[in-house]
Simulated scan of single mutants.
Amino acid sequence: MIFLKLIGSLGLFLYGMKIMSEGLQKVAGDRLRSILTAMTTNRVTGVLTGVLITALIQSSSATTVMVVSFVNAGLLTLAESISVIMGANIGTTVTAWIISIFGFKLIWLLSLFLFWPSPCHLSSQARATVNP
């Protein structure tokens, strides 16, 4: 029974990745092509792009699937995709190291700062009463 759950979960994961990559291919246009070209001009920027994308979506598998779909669509070359995939793997490793060193306390602290009210988030009415 556990094996069937594992196979079903894997199938659902792969199906979701397929749907996401097909959607990205439909959205891809000249602007996306120029953005991808700028982000992967050399190996270093490709690796940094992979690290950044993996940090944003928290999944190196999703990053790899997106990169493979971009190569299939002709938006990236093989050399560019290799550097992005290496960056995705580095990003996953760095995330794991951060969690293992600092634990989940750092994540709670960062999420607290994301939702902390700041003066720039005040409504216009509140700003009018603060700054007469």
Rank of each mutant, 00 (worst) to 15 (best):
A73E: 00
T45V: 08
G11Y: 03
T63F: 04
N72C: 05
S61V: 08
S34L: 10
A38Q: 09
T95S: 11
A128Q: 11
E22S: 05
L24D: 01
T54A: 03
W108H: 10
V71Q: 05
S123D: 11
F3Y: 10
V47H: 05
A38P: 03
M1N: 15
I19L: 08
W108F: 13
K105N: 08
K105M: 08
T37R: 15
T37V: 11
G50V: 02
M39W: 04
H121E: 15
L24G: 01
L122P: 09
T77P: 10
G29H: 00
S60N: 12
L24R: 00
K26T: 04
S81K: 03
G23N: 02
M20G: 01
G87Q: 02
G16P: 02
G103A: 06
I7W: 12
F115M: 11
S81G: 13
W97H: 12
G16C: 06
L52P: 01
A128L: 08
R33V: 01
V130W: 07
P117L: 05
S100H: 13
T45F: 04
G11T: 09
R127F: 06
P119D: 09
L32H: 02
V84F: 08
E80G: 14
L106I: 10
P117E: 02
L52C: 09
G8M: 10
L32G: 04
I85D: 05
R43E: 11
P117R: 06
V84K: 08
F13N: 05
A38E: 10
I53A: 04
W97Y: 14
H121M: 15
M39D: 02
V67P: 00
K5H: 12
K105T: 12
A88T: 07
G8R: 13
T93W: 11
M86I: 15
I82A: 14
F70W: 05
W108M: 09
L114H: 06
M39T: 03
L12A: 15
L78S: 14
T129V: 14
V27G: 01
L6Q: 09
N89Y: 03
A73S: 04
T129A: 07
G11H: 03
G16M: 07
W108V: 06
S59R: 04
P132I: 07
A126E: 11
T92A: 15
G87W: 02
I19T: 07
L122G: 09
L106C: 07
S9P: 07
F104W: 12
A38L: 14
I98S: 07
P117F: 02
I82G: 09
R43V: 11
I107M: 08
N131I: 14
A28W: 00
V67L: 06
G16E: 01
P132H: 12
V44K: 12
L24C: 00
T95L: 08
T129D: 07
A126C: 06
V68Y: 04
I90M: 13
T129W: 05
N72T: 12
T95V: 11
S124Q: 08
W116C: 03
V44T: 13
S83K: 12
M1V: 14
I57V: 07
G8N: 14
G87V: 02
K5M: 14
I7L: 13
V84Y: 03
L78A: 15
T54P: 00
I82M: 15
V44D: 10
V47N: 01
T64N: 06
I53F: 04
P132W: 07
I101S: 12
G8Q: 14
N89K: 06
T41L: 15
M17C: 07
H121A: 15
G87P: 01
N131P: 07
